[in-house]
Design a protein around this nucleic acid. Structure first.
Lengths: 251, 251
DNA sequence: CGATCCTTTGATATGTTTCAAGCTTAGTGG
DNA sequence: CCACTAAGCTTGAAACATATCAAAGGATCG
């Protein structure tokens, strides 16, 4: 049941922001973990349901979203390998939004009760999980700004910058090139635009020589200009000092 | 230095979501607290600065915001008496947004270091503070939806509903009537609209008999319809079972 | 190799912004 | 207590960004 490799991953994730001691690590290694694979579009959490488990993404992408009364969807976050998905809902009873697999995903599943106990027995581990959710919240805030106050070109530029840096930070991309795991419709749902308009804006970014696309692959050709157009500043991502080393110009 | 009354308030706030024992309470009462009054528009936290203190709002209103590169402002949250203001920034090093007094405020100030230690010594208190920030995050998410996918009438209706319920939950308003602590420009900054348009929409809500305004006072005349127009559902506020008793129709 | 999902493009419609000016209210000093 | 000022509210007309509608062209996968 316990798969050492995935627990190793949890330890690594938590240790990026808080120093843990041997006992902390041991407690994490004692967690009951189950590993699973999920097909694209599988729901990991559904709005209105009680959350029993917490999911750690081992591979693949997932996203949070809500659907409005008239059926429009808004994506509130995208998640990449190494990130916790359900600390957000875990301590709050009923889930207030959906979490869904974007691509095929491998996940580690931990019962909430175990995490809750862990956070009581090993306060520093609890603090690390808390900080993890605070970084999520910082990104939510930036998205409010993005969607509330920037025009369509800035919005998409901002999103492309964020994804690039988060992927690089996670060691999943480099040289400002990556495989975008989303359709244009999903990009639209991230930015509060229509798919049609996303298409036009992406074309425009290409025409201006800022990015190059080939199918789902994105290459940022002019990082500084794209960052400027997207009004993008890394502060809200709260990378540790160090961060993606090859992106000095980004900070 | 320690003012028992304000500490009492912290205990009450934290106890709404996690059961605390005597030792937990004692530890909270041992916190070094300073009380202060702040004029409207005073900055409590400034983007880019290190956060040394955590502020609990005792009276008055405050708000979180960022300013974009071209000088537009987006408000990401408004806070009312009884709420913690800086748990969000506290554990993350540099603040990624501003927190400012909306009205004259009385606040209790606690050094971050003390809170950090408290959360290690008394894990359940740490958990309570964590949950507090998770509720903030839930509200951030709903605001992304509001600003991203609802039209101007829904957006403002939604905001008016949220403020009404949060005030009532805090015992600061009843019968769906309250004093709105914001100018129309600030409402615009909450909803990603222009002040001019906020004005027109408020007029429209009045014309439709949904609300009545007199200066800053707002009375919601038709709760059910306003809630419907605003696509408003309380789930994301994560009130405890019970909640504002006189608002059965709201849940 | 047909079917489905995704992307692209054009024409038109619309909600919201922008600009500009007048009006009201609250606060301040003479 | 009035006059003055600044801040906030209200209204109208024109401009603009983005949405909507519609249809065709690619890609992907069983």
């Amino acid at each position: 049941m316990t798969t050492p490799l995935t627990l190793q991953r949890i330890v690594r994730r938590l240790e990026t922001r808080v120093r843990l001691d041997e006992e902390d690590r041991a407690a994490i290694h004692a967690l009951p973990v189950q590993q699973r694979t999920m097909d694209p579009a599988t729901y990991m959490v559904r709005e209105g349901e009680t959350v029993e488990n917490c999911v750690l993404l081992l591979s693949g992408f997932a996203y949070r979203h809500k659907v409005t009364g008239d059926g429009q969807r808004q994506i509130m976050a995208i998640h990449m390998p190494g990130e916790f998905l359900d600390l957000q809902n875990s301590l709050l009873g009923l889930a207030d939004h959906n979490v869904q697999a974007l691509t095929r995903c491998e996940v580690a599943i931990v019962p909430i009760a175990a995490l809750r106990k862990l956070s009581e027995d090993r306060p520093r581990v609890g603090q690390a999980m808390w900080i993890d959710t605070l970084v999520d919240a910082a990104i939510f805030r930036e998205w409010i700004v993005n969607v509330g106050r920037r025009d369509s070109i800035s919005r998409l530029s901002h999103l492309l910058c964020e994804i690039a840096l988060r992927l690089e930070e996670a060691g999943l991309a480099k040289d400002r090139r990556y495989e975008l795991p989303m359709t244009q419709e999903q990009l639209a749902d991230c930015t509060g635009l229509t798919p049609v308009h996303v298409n036009r804006v992406l074309k425009e970014l290409g025409r201006q020589g800022l990015i190059a696309r080939d199918k789902r692959s994105v290459q940022i050709l002019e990082w500084d200009r794209l960052q400027h157009i997207g009004d993008f500043n890394t502060r809200y991502l709260h990378f540790e000092a160090g961060g993606p080393t090859n992106l000095a110009s980004a900070r």
